[in-house]
Simulated assay, not measured.
Amino acid sequence: MNNPPRIPVLQHGDWTTTPSPIDLTKDLDAELHTSGYEAFSEYGRNVHASLALIAYHRAESPSYLVIVDFPERYEVTGATTLPDFMKLLADWLPAVQAAAVTEIATDLRADKDTLLADGIQQLAKAIRGIQ
Rank of each mutant, 00 (worst) to 15 (best):
Y56P: 03
T102M: 12
D113T: 14
G13M: 07
D14M: 08
L28D: 02
E72H: 11
A117E: 05
H48K: 14
G119Y: 02
G78I: 08
R109M: 13
L28A: 08
G78R: 06
T106P: 00
I127P: 01
R128V: 03
H12N: 15
A117L: 05
Q97W: 06
D84V: 09
N3E: 11
L65N: 00
E60W: 00
I120M: 13
V68K: 10
G13C: 09
F85H: 08
G44I: 02
E72Y: 06
A49P: 05
A79C: 09
A126F: 01
E75T: 00
R6A: 09
A39S: 10
A99F: 02
S50G: 15
V76Y: 03
S61I: 10
D27G: 11
Y64K: 04
V9K: 03
T81Y: 04
I127H: 01
V101G: 00
P62V: 08
T114Q: 11
A59R: 11
E31C: 10
G44E: 01
P4C: 05
G119A: 09
D113M: 09
L65S: 03
D118F: 06
G119S: 10
A49Y: 02
R128F: 01
K125N: 12
W92P: 00
A90C: 03
T25R: 15
P8Y: 02
H33F: 15
P83I: 12
L88W: 08
A100E: 06
P83D: 08
A105N: 15
A126Q: 08
L65F: 04
A126W: 00
E31A: 11
K112G: 14
Q121E: 15
E103V: 02
E42Y: 12
A98R: 13
L53V: 03
I22F: 02
A52S: 14
D84E: 07
T18V: 15
L53E: 05
H57W: 14
D91C: 09
P19G: 09
D14E: 13
A90S: 14
E31T: 07
L115K: 10
A126Y: 01
P19I: 04
I130H: 03
P71R: 10
A30M: 13
I127N: 00
T25Y: 07
V47H: 07
